[in-house]
Design a protein around this nucleic acid. Structure first.
Lengths: 201, 201, 201, 201
DNA sequence: AATGAATGAGGCTTCATTCAT
DNA sequence: TATGAATGAAGCCTCATTCAT
């Protein structure tokens, strides 16, 4: 008859993720989360000890979810083009669910610069950059890309993927798109981004 | 080289801008600002009555500064290419000073969606979009751009300009760039962005 | 004999009434009330949101208590003599509990002159004045009162009832009565007042 | 050319008396007083060191003014009737200027019960009570008063004089008198009170 | 003599957290 | 497991007060 305890525990986590990462409520209090979940505020502490521990958990899980998706794409050892496409696809898809996750990454890292959430180790990152460099050179040789340093290539991808979610209200103001139009707009982003990165799309 | 604040009122404002928009401390307290300015917390209330009024003031000023720069570029009625270049240039330059201003725009608009900070009215925005559409068509005809809708063009520009500042820590993690390297990286953004937007750069 | 406050919410209200209206502490802080109640200051906000809301509540309740007592007397449609006696009796009895309630009525009305706490509407007040006028005329005819305007009759009653409570310390100084003597003195007020108002007492 | 310093010192005192005792602003801040006087808040501290010292001074002066008037009446060794009439007259006249002085006496004495402001010493008070007792007995014998204890006689006088000023807003509500009507009403008080105290008026 | 600037103390309020049940 | 009650810490704000001129 009674709701399983794990249900409440899960409900709290799901609600916290929604409030933080989907609604973008940076300053959400435990009461806000409890209200959104329809439970008592004390339950949050019963299950998670403190607001920080709850936040750390959902934050870690949300980034982990993203990392898993990314790793899933990366581990396939796809050719460059398909890899990029897969990464963009994964990023956009997860952003539909948690459009404001990056906002927390940013503010968290400003608060605590030591915060480590990297997908890749520095060594792996270096390796990845070299891989990109070689791939770009091949594309350039084939006339399908302009020369670009790996750092800028990475930054471009991240910017083009993340900002339309983060900056939704700003872009809406600057483009006169209503909510329906913006949803449609986000659907088109993948092709737009690929077309921008590769000359032959 | 240092800003000369003869009076405390100006010092408070400058410090608040720094703490909020340069350091990106979204949750900065009046004590944080007072400490950063080396003054007593009560002085903030002496000059600005409340935290909110101070915030509103520096926020309004910072956005106004940006708007003025942008308006300065736009009002010149430059040809498309030079307009785009000018806008990117202005945006990057102001971002060096206030890299996190957009972060506040975002969170403020999430809190109060009615918040109006637009440079352009809806009518002017429509006009601007049409202008871009025509210009893009001309570029496409000349083989110097791929077809793109104005909304995506605008979003691309905003994303490519803003995110490298907002997302600095994230991009640094993803690119292994240290602070010096990142400063150099930002210097190169203008050319990289233009190269991305126009086929003949 | 002591009020049994099973819950803190009631305890806070009772204590606030005591501090304000029995002890006459006009400037009592939330900490003062919390100390007097033996609870944490935050509990006051837990139950009443703000000092003002708590004050408004206990103030409204205390005046309401008085109004109910008065209305109970008035609604009986007693003959003039018994009405006056009943009103004085009710007023003195409630003053034993909340001698300083009028002090707050005064200061509240000085702060916000629109404050409405009237027992009677203007129309009812006019009616009451006429009733008093007629009754006085009858008493005068019977040789048991001197002529007096209703306004002065009302003011006299209020003054003679209220001031000995409000002005306790002043009257004590002027009469050399100690606390026990003053309690006895207050017991005698009803007869003294009636003797003053009516020639045949 | 310059205003004499004593002028400002006096202006502060006069303004403080007005704000406190005429307007009944119990919670007036130094800023309120400075605004009412049209001077800088710091001047108050320049002349009076602290708010408390200023308050103590004007409070002492205002009570002293009253005491002097009373003493002037009392010292004349007038017959009972003229004494009472003189006291009522003096009290009502000073109340026109400082209607709320008693309000402060009350709250001050509640805050600090040791506060001593008595006109008469305990011994003098006893003497006065005996004098009243004898005079009342004579009036009773002459059929011009009913028997009454001196304490009640004193309390009645104080109540009938003071409360119509203190409780102006309350009495206005209870009598439907507007401001002009109330001014007229106060003019009539002296006769009304005397008529109440003495059977042959 | 007088004042604008600045500050320390103390109030109210919110919030995360703990406690008792 | 879950919650209503209660609390400590920390934030904002106001005020009397002091300082430098």
């Amino acid at each position: 008859m009674e709701v399983l305890s794990t249900d409440t525990e899960q409900l709290i986590k799901d609600t916290a993720k929604k409030v933080f990462f989907k609604d973008g409520k940076l300053h959400a209090t435990t009461q806000d989360i409890a209200d959104a979940a329809g439970i008592n505020r004390a339950s949050i502490h019963y299950y998670y000890r403190s607001r920080k521990l709850l936040f750390d958990k959902v934050f870690a899980e949300a980034t982990e979810e993203m990392h898993v998706k990314m790793a899933g794409v990366i581990s396939q050892n796809l050719p460059f083009r398909q890899l990029i496409e897969g990464v963009i696809d994964a990023f956009l898809k997860k952003s539909v669910e948690h459009p404001y996750l990056e906002l927390f990454l940013i503010t968290e890292m400003n608060t605590d610069p030591n915060l480590s959430f990297a997908i890749l180790s520095p060594e792996e990152t270096e390796e990845r950059k070299k891989m990109i460099q070689l791939a770009v050179e091949a594309e350039v040789a084939a006339g399908t890309m302009k020369p670009i340093e790996p750092e800028h290539f990475i930054a471009n991808m991240m910017s083009l993927c993340a900002f339309p979610f983060l900056g939704k209200p700003m872009i809406q103001k600057a483009t006169n798109l209503n909510d329906d139009g913006y949803a449609q707009f986000l659907q088109e982003r993948k092709e737009v981004i690929l077309k921008l990165l590769f000359l032959d799309r």
